[in-house]
Simulated scan of single mutants.
Amino acid sequence: MYQYEGEDVFVIDGHLHWWDASKENIKHEGGEQFIRCFYDYHTGFTPEERQWSLEEYRKYDADRMLRDVFGDGHADMGILQPTYLNEFYKEGFNTIDRCAELVEEHPERFIVNGRFDPREGEAGLRELERQKEEYDVKGVKLYTAEWRGDSKGWRLDSEEAFEYLEKCAELGIKNVHPHKGPTIRPLNRDAFDVADVDAAATSFPELNFVVEHVGLPRLDDFCWIAAQEPNVYGGLAVAAPFAETRPRKFGEIMGELLYWLGEDRILFGSDYAIWEPEWLIEAVMEAEMTPEQREEFGVELDLETKRKIMGENAARLYDIDIEKRKEILREDGISERFGIADQYDESAAAD
C-alpha cells in the first residue's frame, strides 16, 4: 500500500491493459500505426530512465505486469479495460478473455470489464450476456472510434447503442467507460468526441458513465456535460502524466474537474502499459495547485481528496470494501513475492 507522509493510501488503478501488439498478431497496417502511436505517447511523457524499448512494449508477460503494477507500482488493485481492435489484430489487441486469465490467477488484485460494439447486433448482445455470465463484469469499456468494415466509428447516443445500454442495465453492468480522449493513429478524432455522453447519461440515470481521459483535449465540453449529469465521472488516464511533465497544467486540469465534478467523481488510472503506475502515483500524490489556482477554483488538492481519487471512488463504484480487501491482501502471494507484505500488516503499520 502506498505511504504518503506516513499515511496509508489505498490505490485502485482504474485503467489497465494487457495487450498483444506483436508483429505476429498484426493483420492490418493500422495495427502497426496504433502501437507506434501508443509508443509515442509513452516516450513523450515517460521519464527517460523509465522508458521501454518498442519491442518489449509490443507484448509483455504477466510477470512483468504484476511487478510493474503491484510490486514496484504502488497499486493495490487494478481494473482491466479491454480494447479489441479486431480489424487491426488477428487475436484482438486487448481482449476480455485474455485479461480474464489475470483475474483467474489473482482475483484479489484484478477486476476485468467487458465491452460491446453496437454494430455487432444480436450477436453482440449475446456476447455481452456471456461476459456477464462467465466473468460477472460490473463495467464495460467502449471504444467508439474502433473500425468495423467500412465503418470508422459509432455513437453512444445512437438507437443501437441504447439497446446495448438497456442490456447493461438489465444485466446489472452499471459502470460504462467510454474512451473520450486523444486520438490514436489511424482512428478518427471526431469519433472520440465527448458530446454523445450527454444524451446517454440522461437516458440511463441508473448507469455510471466514467469518461476515460476526461474528454481531453475537449476538457471544457466534458466538464459542462458532467456538471449537469450527476452520473458522469472522470477517469484521469492520460491526464495523470501531466503531474510529472507539466505540473501547472495538471493543476489547471484538476482545478476544473474539482470545480465542476467535485472530489467524489474523479478516478485515477495509469493507462498501463502506456505508462507505469509507479512514477504516476508518486507524481499525482505530490501534485499541488498553485496559490492562484486554489484561489481561482476555490478547491484544494489535499490528502483526503487524493485518497478519494486514488481508490475510494473506484471502490464505491465497484462495491469494494477497502478494509476487507486489505485483510485479503495480507495473505496475497504477490505481496510476498515482491516483498511488500508488510504494507498490509497492521502491526508493521503501527510501528
Score class of each variant (00 low, 15 high):
T183R: 13
A227N: 14
V210C: 10
E163G: 09
L187R: 09
H213C: 03
E263H: 15
T245N: 10
R265K: 15
L219V: 08
G153R: 04
G251T: 02
L267N: 10
G234A: 05
I184S: 06
V137R: 07
D136C: 09
S203W: 12
E166S: 13
K167C: 03
Y143I: 07
K141M: 11
E159L: 08
A161H: 05
E252N: 14
F209A: 01
S203Q: 14
R218W: 08
E163M: 08
A195M: 09
L267W: 06
Q131G: 00
D193R: 07
D150F: 15
L128K: 02
M254P: 04
L219E: 00
F204A: 03
E244W: 15
G153A: 05
P178K: 03
K152T: 13
E160G: 07
L128E: 03
P186M: 07
L258P: 12
N231T: 01
W275Y: 15
D136F: 14
E244Q: 15
A273V: 13
Q131F: 12
K174M: 03
M254Y: 11
K138Y: 10
Y135M: 05
L142Q: 06
H213Q: 12
I225Q: 02
E276M: 11
G269S: 08
I253R: 13
L156M: 10
R148C: 00
L258Q: 10
Y143A: 05
G153T: 02
G235E: 02
A243P: 08
G235S: 08
T144F: 04
V232D: 01
A201F: 07
A237Q: 14
L142I: 14
I173D: 00
F222V: 03
F222R: 03
L267K: 08
G172T: 06
H177D: 08
L165Y: 10
W260K: 13
A237K: 10
E263K: 15
G262H: 05
V176D: 03
G251M: 09
C168A: 04
I225V: 05
A161Q: 01
C168S: 01
P178L: 04
I225F: 06
W154I: 00
A201C: 12
P205W: 00
F250A: 03
E129I: 13
Q228A: 12
C168E: 04
C223M: 04
E206D: 12
S203G: 14
W224F: 13
M254E: 01
C223N: 09
P217L: 06
G139R: 00
D190K: 14
T183F: 06
K180N: 10
N175Q: 01
I253W: 14
V137E: 07
P217K: 06
E244V: 10
Y233A: 11
S270H: 10
Y272R: 11
I173Y: 05
V210I: 12
